[in-house]
C-alpha cells in the first residue's frame, strides 16, 4: 500500500477562516470558519475524492491547495517541502506543482483568447521561448486530450461543452504539473459526454503518472474514479478511507445519508435500498458519531474537540467522546 511511503501532498491541521466585515466601521467581530483543523494526504498516482455538499468548505480547500487562499492555521507540504507559511513558493513555482480543472467549461475559458493563445501564454511565461518547442508542446497536449492540433486556432465558443472541458484539461496539463485538482469535472457536462471525460481523466492519470484531488458530490463518479474518499462536513473530514470500504461499509451517519440520497436509476428500478436506517452500525463504545445532528452547525463557532478513529483497514471516522 502506498500509505507507507511519503505522501506527495500532505495537509496538516489546516484551518481557513474568513473575517466577516459588517457595519459602518467594518470591524470584524467574527470569522466564518470554512475549514477546521483538517488533515489529509494524497499519495502519488492516487485519486483522492472529497465529497460533501455546498458550504462544506471543499472549494475553499481546493483554493488553499492551489495557493489562491492563505491558510489561517496549519500547513500544506508538497513532496515533503512546506508550501505554506514562510517557506511558501511563488505563483510560478506553485504552477508547476498543482493545476485545476474547473467545473464550468463555459466560464473557465477566456472568450477573447484562441485555444493556442491560452496554451502558449503559460508556456512562454514559464520560459519556453523556442517557437518550435511551444508549438510541439501545444500539439502533443491537444492530442493527449483528444483534440486536433489544427483546432487550436479557434475560439472557445466554437467548441461544444465536452470539447471545452478537454481544452480545460489541456490547459491544466500544459505545465506538466504533478497534482491536478478536479472541481466537479463532469457535473456541468451532458450525460452522454461524461463517460468520455471520465475515461480521459483516468487514462491521463496512468499515462502521465498524475495525482488527482477530486471534489464532487456525484457519488457514482466518485466510486468509479477514486482510490481514496474523504467525506467532508462543515470544514471537517467525518469519514475517510479506501473507496471500497467507504462504499461497501459506510459507517458515519452523514456518509450513509449522502449515499441514500443519490437517485441511482438502477437501484431504484431494482427497488433496493443501499443504506437502510436500521443498518446503521453502532459507534465505538464510549463515543458518539460527530456530528450527530446534520444541518445544525454554527459557522462562527469552532467545533468541539473530536477524535478521528480507525474503524477498519485504513478507514477512519470522526467521533466525539461521550
Amino acid at each position: 500500500m502506498a500509505s507507507q511511503t511519503q505522501p506527495l501532498l500532505q495537509i496538516e491541521n489546516l484551518s481557513v477562516c474568513f473575517p466577516v466585515s459588517a457595519g459602518l466601521f467594518r470591524r470584524s467581530h467574527q470569522a466564518v470558519r470554512a475549514i477546521n483543523n483538517l488533515s489529509l494526504s494524497l499519495h502519488k498516482n492516487q485519486c483522492l475524492s472529497i465529497v460533501g455538499e455546498s458550504g462544506c468548505g471543499k472549494s475553499t480547500l481546493a483554493l488553499t491547495i492551489l495557493g489562491l487562499q492563505h491558510p489561517t492555521h496549519g500547513s500544506i507540504s508538497f513532496d515533503g517541502k512546506p508550501i505554506t507559511g514562510a517557506a511558501q513558493p511563488g505563483r510560478m513555482q506553485r504552477a508547476r506543482m498543482a493545476q485545476m480543472v474547473f467545473q464550468d467549461p463555459y466560464a473557465s475559458l477566456n472568450p477573447r483568447q484562441t485555444i493556442h493563445a491560452a496554451l502558449a501564454g503559460p508556456l512562454r511565461l514559464h520560459g519556453l521561448r523556442n517557437k518550435g518547442e511551444v508549438e510541439d508542446r501545444i500539439a502533443t497536449t491537444l492530442k493527449m486530450v483528444g483534440l486536433k492540433p489544427e483546432q487550436a486556432k479557434r475560439y472557445p465558443h466554437e467548441f461544444s461543452g465536452g470539447q471545452r472541458q478537454r481544452i480545460g484539461i489541456a490547459r491544466a496539463l500544459i505545465l506538466d504539473p504533478k497534482v491536478i485538482v478536479l472541481d466537479e469535472p463532469v457535473s456541468a457536462l451532458d450525460v452522454s459526454i461524461r463517460a468520455q471525460i471520465i475515461n480521459l481523466l483516468l487514462d491521463l492519470k496512468e499515462r502521465l503518472d498524475l495525482s488527482y484531488i477530486m471534489i464532487s458530490h456525484d457519488l457514482s463518479v466518485v466510486e468509479h474514479m477514486s482510490d481514496r474518499v474523504a467525506v467532508m462536513y462543515f470544514g471537517q473530514i467525518v469519514e475517510e478511507g479506501p473507496w471500497q470500504s467507504i462504499f461497501a461499509n459506510p459507517v458515519h451517519p452523514y456518509t450513509r445519508r449522502l449515499l441514500a440520497a443519490i437517485p441511482d436509476p438502477f437501484t431504484i428500478i431494482r427497488q433496493e435500498d443501499i443504506t437502510r436506517k436500521d443498518m446503521q452500525p453502532p459507534p465505538l463504545s464510549g463515543f458518539s458519531y460527530y456530528p450527530e445532528e446534520i444541518g445544525t452547525h454554527d459557522v462562527y463557532q469552532s467545533p468541539p474537540p473530536t477524535e478521528f478513529l480507525t474503524v477498519g483497514d485504513d478507514h477512519k471516522v470522526r467521533f466525539i467522546a461521550r
Binding site: L68, G90, F102
Partner: peptide, 22 residues
Amino acid sequence: SQGYVQAAKTLGYSDIRIMITQ
C-alpha cells in the same frame, strides 16, 4: 471571479498580467 482568471492565477500569471491579458 471567472474561472479563466482563477486558472491564470494557478498557471503563475502575475496580477498585472492577468489584468492586461484576461
